[in-house]
Design a protein around this nucleic acid. Structure first.
Lengths: 190, 190
DNA sequence: GACTAAGCGGACACCGTGTCCACTTGAAGG
DNA sequence: CCTTCAAGTGGACACGGTGTCCGCTTAGTC
């Protein structure tokens, strides 16, 4: 019998589900897609879908996973200013810029996955949090724990989406504003 | 016939609904209270409830209204540093502090009313936005429109709730961190 | 080819939402 | 007081999405 491996049909269905979900999220917008929709589009029963993914967020998260991992890798071991080596203010700016790109490229996924309270529960949020905190520590700021979440708050999908859609701001303007925020908090303290 | 006035029974029911909702929100937490619950606790039919309030958020908003109005009044015509007269950085700090108090005192309402995307649709958000923007303008910062929402983002109920409940931060520490944020962005640029 | 457990999927029950409409009631006018 | 009628009421209803449960199927092993 198989030990830790998943069965071939299970793997096939997993792929089908993710592919169908990706397509539906992009076409309809994540909040408008029901579990039922995904199951039907994937040619799979509801029970099968729920077996692996308890809710929409879990699916979006799975789709998002690889992209976030790539960014995390760059933060840890990439070239400056994203990776180690640059001064904290520059690294925070670069992080903001990278996150804006990620939000922009995968808005439909992010809006389905990391919305509201559940955003904080994801492993990714913990990673971003640790990263920003380490930059605050490196800059010698007092009480970094209290500032970290406030600096991450502008990256909430709802906020970004509002700025883009309702306020009509371009990604470039948002990135520039966040850079000023980063420099204000971390830079110019001599 | 009555002209613009509401009938006596309508007024009585309005009061009953608000009172019942306030109690339930505080006791159960806003997201766990259904329209049905409120209707029953108020001794009112579902139809009556929906007549005036299309959803939970509308009720919470009505309950929140007077508190937010009071703060808005202070921002416009109160004493410095909350009101006009103080330098922008000080006024932003004071605004942050006042909002933290408001979030702290009415967490159960705010979590029901201004959560997720709907937060931006409220009139109150527009007011806070205009206020912060005017401070950025007064400080002579470039492109205030792009920064405003980022500076308001830390005040999202989800963020504040996460910091308080999950991270275990006190209101004082959060306020202090926001003050540093305000000073970093608006002050210290000579 | 037979056995077995993992995997499958649709039927089902449940819950909250929002609407609709027949009924009631408060207030103005005679 | 009594009539009138629109504003107001409230419960029944239909709908849609969620999540679970269990009999059936199929992949993989011996």
């Amino acid at each position: 019998m198989l030990r830790g491996m998943e069965r071939a049909d299970a793997a096939r269905n997993r792929a089908r589900v993710l592919e169908a979900a990706e397509r539906l999220f992009a076409a309809e917008g994540a909040p408008n897609v029901t579990m039922e929709d995904i199951a039907r589009a994937a040619g799979v029963g509801r029970g099968t879908l729920y077996r692996r993914y308890p809710d929409r967020a879990a699916i979006a998260l799975a789709l998002l996973d690889e992209h976030e991992r790539a960014l995390q890798e760059k933060l840890l071991r990439g070239a400056p200013p994203l990776g180690p080596g640059a001064p904290p203010a520059a690294r925070l700016s670069a992080f903001y810029a990278a996150m804006v790109r990620l939000l922009e490229d995968h808005a439909h996924l992010v809006l389905g996955a990391e919305t509201g309270r559940s955003r904080f529960a994801t492993g990714a949020y913990g990673f971003w949090r640790a990263h920003v905190r380490s930059l605050l520590v490196a800059a010698g700021l007092p009480d970094p724990d209290a500032l970290t979440d406030s600096l991450l708050a502008p990256l909430a999908p709802e906020v970004y989406g509002f700025q883009r859609a309702e306020r009509g701001l371009s990604p470039e303007r948002i990135t520039a504003a966040l850079a000023r925020l980063a420099n204000g908090v971390l830079g110019g303290h001599e």
